[in-house]
Amino acid sequence: MYEPIRTQSVHTVTGTPSDFPHRSREEELDIQLAGHLAALLAVTDEIRALAPSGDLDTAAARLTEQVARLRGGISPVRASTAPESRAAALHQRAHALAGRALVVAASRADTAAAILAAERMDAHALATGPRALAAH
């Protein structure tokens, strides 16, 4: 009733080199975490342009350090200012980005990045107030 398979499955062929590079789960998580932290840095830079503070300067420096570490020493591109941006919306976006970074950092057991992301979540939650983030 069924015709037998005459060729070997591509999934069972061993010893053949792949046409594309494979990354480990850890490498993929590094890339994902670096992306989340770089996005958080961009929003942090925008907030710093609207309301400069020492806390945000320190956070930006720490975020830059973590992104560079995860990218093998390559520093992230810094955001330009957007004067028409609203501070509350930026804090909400930064809170969400920090949350995503925290999830990835926790999954790869990166304590330094997880602590930094959690601290940034707290800082942005305080900046917008609990009602603004709960509604978002």
Rank of each mutant, 00 (worst) to 15 (best):
Y2P: 00
Y2N: 00
E3Y: 14
R6M: 09
Q8F: 07
Q8I: 13
S9K: 07
T12Y: 00
V13E: 13
T14Q: 15
F20G: 01
F20E: 06
P21N: 08
P21M: 08
H22R: 14
R25T: 13
R25E: 14
R25G: 14
E27L: 09
E27F: 08
E27I: 08
E28F: 11
E28I: 11
L29V: 03
L29N: 07
D30M: 08
L33V: 03
H36S: 09
A38G: 07
A38S: 15
A39W: 02
L41S: 02
R48F: 14
A49P: 04
A51L: 09
P52A: 06
S53R: 08
D55E: 14
D55F: 06
D55A: 15
L56P: 01
D57F: 00
D57E: 15
T58Q: 12
T58K: 13
A59K: 02
A59G: 01
A60K: 05
A60F: 04
A61G: 07
E65A: 13
Q66C: 07
R71Y: 08
G73F: 02
S75G: 06
R78F: 06
R78N: 02
P83T: 13
A87W: 09
A89R: 14
A89L: 14
Q92D: 11
A94C: 07
A94G: 15
H95D: 12
H95C: 05
H95G: 10
A96P: 08
A96Q: 10
A98K: 03
G99I: 04
R100F: 08
L102P: 02
V103Q: 13
A105M: 01
A105V: 03
A106W: 11
D110A: 12
D110W: 01
D110G: 03
T111G: 07
A114F: 04
I115C: 03
A117Q: 05
A117C: 02
E119W: 02
M121C: 11
M121Y: 06
A123S: 12
T128V: 15
G129I: 00
R131K: 08
R131V: 08
A132V: 11
A132R: 09
L133K: 04
